[in-house]
Design a protein around this nucleic acid. Structure first.
Lengths: 328, 328
DNA sequence: TTGAAAGCGCTAACAT
DNA sequence: ATGTTAGCGCTTTCAA
């Protein structure tokens, strides 16, 4: 199975395993000459430390356990940032995916067996209580999900601000009758909705607040579109990009032009919204910044830095593409 | 770090650790009553076996190392199937992502340290020689990539057949002037191109063969579209969906109708091609079947089943959506 | 600076 | 059917 071990290197270099261990870890306590020779031998033998054996003895795995959902529009983008940040912090990632037939419980249980030192959970869907229970075993950083529980850190987007940016953009273009298609029961939906209401109020447009029930799928946007068809609304902010494309489709299919007759702002900057075909104006979450914060926080907690749970809120930004313009 | 151990369970249940080990693994050699009691205690104590310690001793990790690319249109879909199949085979997956700043070498090196028993590589981009070298260390199953090397198993789509299906569909609709926008230098491009040529030949359309240089991005399709604009071509098969949407975009932007003036067939059935907006007719790879085969093969090899390397070729299928119709 | 020895949590012979 | 014992590859006291 595993090829060359510490003992092999030690024998070849004519020193003890303990010394090789010191050298391999870059720990202090080895002569320069010895160090060099050991390194040379290790390289020649293509020695690879056994992470598991190392953990077994040291009690430390330097591992961050990450769950992500294969269906989520930008979870994989977050992974990119997570790898970057973890690398800088000297940690490794151990990934556990949530799929249509593999739930969060399973994903987390596997991570637990991997003995990771902290969890970074991407948009966890489990009840806040379950997160709190998990946090008793290992530090938990929840990304893109708002929770207030003992021991659970949060790194999320300022959803209210995101909605503000969308509304501000539309108002700046001259729109006044701006509706919002919401995200239903999802955790992030309430705040995006509230941000919309608040922004409308601040622009003195409270009387034009109009919330259309929606959801997170294309079909939800499509359904909501029907309500907009024979109606004075000139712009709409939608819970997410997927729903927005569903809406776009129906609206255009019924002969109304976007952005000529109706401006549409999505949310998330999902990869497909960049397609020339769709070119959706949307709110982009700052994936890189969130990933960096999440890793930093997870590492701090894993290393026992004092301090209670923290909520880190990152500003999103508006990405203007081709589905918004001044009202016709 | 790790909470409860075998020893804890053994003490609590009043038996030896060895016996608990037997019970936990479901191995034969324990009394029914004992087994039940041990299980009860383990559950009560929330005991979780330490995968690494287990491996350390047994030399077996029951782990399949998987690399996937966060940018690839359907790699995450493959993960779903891989998890299903691995679960059935009693194996776990250890995932290692390729990102814009984390190359395949790094991803594979990490897997090696994880001591996985076999590799399942999704569309590996490394040279065939590198794959062969890797295969000397552990069994390698390459998915969606054609390689013929000692020790490297392959599970891939019948790309020629995919192109045949696209052309057959178009010919069935009445098209004769069918062009192909190719995928440039990518491994899979050559076969898709050849499949197109072959199919055209079989329909007696060899004189209409027309290959337009392309690539794998949206911009490649967009560039290729220019050549189709003032031209008698009535249908086109494109290397992949992303390129196809780029093409679609330019074609429509120039006032030609799809499918009225031009029929378009993509390849891959990427998630965005399902969007109502795009509704691209495309060739869907059988992700589930491929995942199942890959795991089966990886496990066979990990367990030392005899037999040389094998190439498993899976048939794709045509998904008809709204970008194809009879010529106008 | 270097080495010897113990042991992390587990499994696999081998006893009983 | 159950217990004893000896490690897996590594890190970590502790001595030299």
């Amino acid at each position: 199975m595993s090829r060359v071990t510490l003992a092999d290197v030690a024998a070849e270099a004519g020193v003890s395993v303990a010394l090789v261990s010191i050298v391999m870890r870059g720990a202090p306590g080895a002569g320069a000459a010895t160090r060099e020779r050991v390194l040379e031998v290790a390289k020649r033998l293509d020695y690879r430390p056994d992470t598991r054996a190392r953990l077994l003895r040291s009690g430390r795995s330097q591992l961050l356990g990450v769950t992500f959902d294969v269906r989520h529009p930008f979870h994989v983008d977050v992974l990119t940032g997570l790898y970057d940040a973890a690398g800088r912090a000297g940690y490794q990632l151990t990934l556990s995916a949530v799929t249509p037939r593999r739930d969060e419980r399973t994903a987390v249980a596997e991570l637990l067996e991997d003995r990771c030192e902290a969890f970074v959970l991407l948009t966890p869907r489990m009840p806040a209580t379950a997160l709190a229970v998990l946090a008793e075993q290992r530090p938990v950083v929840a990304m893109m999900r708002s929770v207030r529980r003992r021991g659970v850190d949060v790194v999320r987007t300022d959803e209210m601000l995101g909605s503000h940016q969308a509304v501000d953009h539309l108002v700046g273009l001259g729109h006044r009758r701006i509706a919002h298609v919401d995200g239903g029961e999802l955790h992030e939906a309430a705040e995006r909705r509230r941000g919309y209401e608040e922004a409308m109020g601040r622009h003195g447009l409270a009387h034009h607040v109009r919330i259309i029930p929606g959801g997170s799928g294309e079909e939800d946007g499509a359904r909501a579109a029907a309500e907009l068809l024979d109606d004075a609304t000139t712009a709409v902010t939608v819970f997410n990009d997927l729903s927005a494309t569903g809406l776009l489709d129906v609206v255009r299919g019924n002969g109304r032009r976007v952005p000529g007759d109706l401006s549409v702002v999505g949310y998330d900057d999902s990869s497909f919204s960049r397609l020339g075909h769709i070119a959706l104006t949307t709110i982009a979450q700052d994936v890189t910044a969130m990933a960096t914060h999440a890793v930093t926080r997870a590492v701090e907690r894993a290393e026992g830095k004092p301090g209670g749970e923290r909520e880190i809120v990152v500003a999103p930004r508006l990405v203007v593409r081709e589905t918004t313009a001044a009202p016709g």
